[in-house]
Design a protein around this nucleic acid. Structure first.
Lengths: 106, 106
DNA sequence: GGTGTATATACGCTTGCTGTAATACTTCTG
DNA sequence: CAGAAGTATTACAGCAAGCGTATATACACC
């Protein structure tokens, strides 16, 4: 499984979104994805671990998951070649993105 | 099938890459993906069509495929939230991307 | 040590994607 | 109109991904 496939799954994107706010124990992630059972979430976390998008740290009987966003650069690299083809009226979006790069809010 | 799933398939990314150079008839795309048969390529093109990543124009008995890169903005929007978490030593990459935005080569 | 909590793995099932082969459809050419 | 070229669709088989249930492992606390 590669990074592209990993983020193709909506639940896995949701997990990454949750972890982008802060690191969280597995149980907290399970609680948020209330449509899935605990084993299902655990398996998604395993996949994210295997492609390097998250890392785990044990904390007693808990496992604390944290985002490793730099693995997304593989996606970024691929998609960047296509930016030049976007319509001009999307400049606002692009500027917004550029600002995000230069003024990280956190 | 959504855009994330569509680009999760390596052959489909290859098709988009080919179309980013120029629009091409289906047969030319089939010739480039020599590991796949014609029907396989045709179905990948159908999927790309259905999610709006390419559009088709008939030219006699040929079908000319062209890229519609703006559909990739859905990916861009999602991934943009994660840029702030990338390590600082990747600034060079980010600058490169920003330049691409501002000075389209074509 | 025993019990409860937290997380991971095993298993069986189902669904959906991928590929090939065969076929149909459309358009061009003579 | 016949035949060929270009492309799409259908039919079928194989495989992988996802799910839930059940079970195992690891740690915590008494």
């Amino acid at each position: 499984m590669d990074v592209f496939e990993a983020i193709a799954e909506p639940s896995r994107r949701e997990l990454l979104d949750l972890l982008s706010e802060r690191e969280r124990p597995a149980g907290e992630l399970v609680a948020h994805l209330h449509k899935l059972t605990q084993p299902a979430v655990s398996r998604h976390l395993r996949i994210l671990r295997e492609v390097g998008l998250v890392e785990v740290r044990p904390d007693g009987q808990r496992r604390i998951y944290a985002l490793r966003a730099d693995r997304l650069i593989e996606i970024e690299n691929w998609i960047s070649r296509y930016r030049r083809y976007w319509p001009r009226h999307l400049d606002a979006l692009e500027n917004h993105l550029t600002q995000n790069q230069k003024e990280p809010t956190e």
